[in-house]
Write a protein that binds this DNA or RNA. Structure first.
Lengths: 274, 274
DNA sequence: ACTATTTGTTACCCATGGGTAATATACGGG
DNA sequence: CCCGTATATTACCCATGGGTAACAAATAGT
């Protein structure tokens, strides 16, 4: 591929006063390899996060050392600092991915139609399923106080937004008659509490699939406040795909990326550090 | 009141060969002062636990240092080692107190009458209220992996017992017809999850009292699976007393003590260390 | 082939905090 | 008054682990 310097030299040889800012042979953009390097970098970055979130969940943030994370990736600790400023930033990025996934759920649910109760059920299912994945668990298992002041503010704000979504759907449901009158705040706490707790007890290898848990919880948690009884019990076979971790393996990375902008001040995809 | 020394001297004065091992005036047992010393010790021990549980909740177990705990008690770190073997033992004892309180709830609920649903509601209320107290929060906010192998086993066993209580009440309720047929395991997870989550969001100074939260949750969490609708909404004014922390201030320390034996291998009240 | 950049390594620093040893003080009992 | 015990203090040890500096190897572009 022609590069700028070669082009420039040939121009000098020909004694033409053509400006180097307009190279002739441009068949292959010099930007492509740069992009591929950047992508390789991002893939490594995400590999770090996958290893980190697993270790943080397995052992707890404080017991899991950066040496552990590095060892799992067959590198050494200082290499991690090519991708992250420090341990707490890794934690934040794990949390951030989880939050992007939640924001997807909320966005899609809000965009879709249906009554307040329908929205609440849809969000409940998707949120429950998310809680059975690593990045979903990040949202409820990690301690905000391990983050820097700045990142903690971001997370707190985002958490309030999630809580608001539940409350809003309940309030909408009360307004449109699909939900029995109740205190939206406490009802949201009750539902979100049950769902969040999934992230504490669910084990991927157990007798229950994440999808089965999600379906059951969606019924259980909403039947108390629903005006309609919903005893149809749709018996569609459990979907195979897993949200979160698993789906990120198959190359469809736009899923998480799409909502990156909506995830508040999350600075993911900010590129290199130095 | 005559003291032992005076009595002894008068005996010698009378030149009687009476053995000092059988003093005449025994109106005050020499064991009393020893007992009082032991009680003073136990009071200090519990003061340490109160300070510790507060700090562990405020800052998290790993960020809270033993120096912090000691400073709050106006002593220094090594003094703590007169009462505990180490930091993880303090954590375990905090957890242990919480567990004794839960065991009280379960014991009283099981002893009392009523249908399975009644028991479930009773336990739900008491458990929810407990989750608004410091020692109650210990049960769900502290990480088992910070405990020693031995103590972790104890805690895990006890946690399973708590879970079992919820499941059993639900199963009883299904059997006696007070609860709709459902999977007791998942229903228990759903209810206990909501309740446990209270320990994460409840702030004692907020707009809601622990009792109000407990009443509301007991209704919300059981109305979905109850066969009877229970729309009487008993409007009795909220009780004043707080379970846990507060009630321990008023001198009725038998509350926690009574179930000490039932709390599994909890070695509380084992007295001095050395 | 040559050079600059990226990415990784080895070897180190050092703040933190749990835990201990030596020691001083208070106190009850004889 | 003296002694033993309990309790507290000061002064330390040291393993841990996050973070950094200096340097080496891989790689892309020219």
């Amino acid at each position: 591929m022609g590069n700028i310097r070669a082009t420039f030299r040939s121009q000098c040889d020909n004694s033409h006063a053509m400006d180097a800012r307009f190279p002739l042979s441009n068949t292959e953009s010099p930007w492509l390899p740069f992009e591929s390097r950047r992508r390789a970098r991002d893939e490594k970055r995400e590999a770090v996060l996958r290893a980190a979130v697993q270790l943080f969940l397995e052992q707890g943030y404080h017991r899991a050392t950066l040496n552990d994370v590095a060892k799992r990736l067959n590198i050494t600790k200082p290499a991690l600092y090519n991708y992250f400023r420090g341990k707490d930033e890794i934690l934040f990025e794990c949390w951030s991915i989880g939050h992007e996934l939640v924001d997807d759920c909320i966005g899609e649910t809000s965009a879709g139609g249906g009554s307040g109760l329908d929205k609440l059920r849809k969000l409940t299912i998707r949120y429950a399923e998310l809680m059975t994945t690593d990045y979903g668990k990040s949202l409820v298992r990690f301690d905000l106080r391990d983050l820097s002041e700045h990142n903690r503010k971001i997370v707190q704000t985002a958490k309030r937004r999630i809580d608001r979504a539940f409350r809003d759907y309940i309030a909408i449901g009360i307004a449109d008659g699909s939900v029995k009158p109740c205190d939206p705040k406490l009802a949201a706490f009750a539902i979100a509490g049950s769902l969040n707790w999934i992230g504490h007890w669910f084990q991927p290898g157990g007798e229950l699939t994440g999808h089965a848990v999600a379906e059951e919880f969606a019924i259980r948690l909403t039947e108390g406040i629903a005006t309609t009884s919903m005893r149809k019990k749709a018996d569609k076979p459990p979907r195979k795909g897993n949200v979160g971790n698993a789906s990120r393996e198959d190359g469809s990375e736009h899923h998480a990326r799409a909502a990156a902008g909506a995830a508040g001040q999350s600075k993911r995809a900010r590129g290199r550090l130095r």
